[in-house]
Design a protein around this nucleic acid. Structure first.
Lengths: 166, 166
DNA sequence: CACAGATTTGACGTTCACGTAAGATGACGC
DNA sequence: GCGTCATCTTACGTGAACGTCAAATCTGTG
């Protein structure tokens, strides 16, 4: 690790990307409403990176990334917020496992930590993969129909040519 | 076409598959609640194949297939019932186009009908394909993580072997 | 410090997609 | 015809995921 001497520098030069925004800009950046951000916090899905002295929520890059992840799981996979809470909680757990991994020297413990992370990721992967399969099937069916109509149109076209040639 | 003399036979031998079920069995077969079937009818999504003399809804194979389609669009693609109404309405339109196709001899009209069906199907296909792409991306990302953890585990295992061999 | 605009905490409203209960009516075996 | 179960219409209830409004407070600027 490189020495991070400037890490606790006051304000004008944020060496690391710890820039924070308040809820208005955060909502804009994440493409959701302010209410949505507060609601996610209400149900324990999203904790702001910090708060101003007066109590305004402040969102950093990690928090914004989490919102993106939530929306992804919601709109793409179709999970509800309760299920999403389960997923991100497990992902948080993976993060803490990573920390634990770097803080232990016991190889057996390290293996156990990796195994746990592996299993959690595999479970979600299986679920997503299954959904992809089904939607892809659906898509192929539609592609077949499109091809069918295209063939019909081509047939119509050649018939028309023959007629005009006769 | 084979002659369908028995088609209008009274009841004991339904030569064609025009068997109807009432709402209870229909719900069972479709895997939804009775309320859901009535609700779909309320909002103009699903019209029962017929009614008994006393007013009981009767569902045929086509109606059941439509329910399956609705659920597919809902759970798989994530459309809401309003959007689904749009899709199935267009699919109904394709059906009537098919009829019109067989009832006209004008090649230009036929081409126009096929073209319309093609365009509608293409639109849905594009939408579904886009979704597949995004989810597949997501899946691959998860697969990468799984592979990463597997590699880590393997590394742990070989290290352990080396230790026990020394 | 004053002021405009952003943000806070409640608290109630809304939409979607049904669930559920009630009372009346239909279907059907005996 | 009768009893039983399924189904009918009508209507109010519900959970999820926010929307919206009000009154107080915070933030940044002149």
């Amino acid at each position: 690790m490189t020495e991070a001497v400037t890490e606790v520098a006051s304000s004008p030069a944020p060496a690391t990307d710890d820039r924070h925004v308040r809820i208005g800009e955060a909502a804009q950046l994440a493409g959701v409403s302010e209410r949505t951000l507060r609601y996610y916090e209400e149900i324990g899905l999203l904790i702001p990176s910090g708060h101003s002295a007066g109590g305004c929520r402040e969102y950093g890059a990690a928090a914004l990334a989490r919102v993106a992840r939530i929306r992804e799981l919601q709109e793409l996979i179709g999970l509800n917020l309760e299920e999403i809470r389960g997923v991100v909680t497990r992902e948080d757990r993976i993060g803490s496992l990573r920390d634990a991994f770097h803080q232990t020297d016991d190889p057996r413990e390290r293996s156990a930590l990796v195994l746990e992370a592996l299993e959690m990721t595999e479970a979600l992967h299986a679920r997503v993969a299954a959904k992809v399969e089904r939607i892809a099937e659906f898509r192929d069916e539609l592609a077949d129909r499109v091809a069918h109509y295209r063939a019909l149109l081509a047939e119509r076209a050649t018939e028309a040519e023959e007629r005009s040639a006769s």
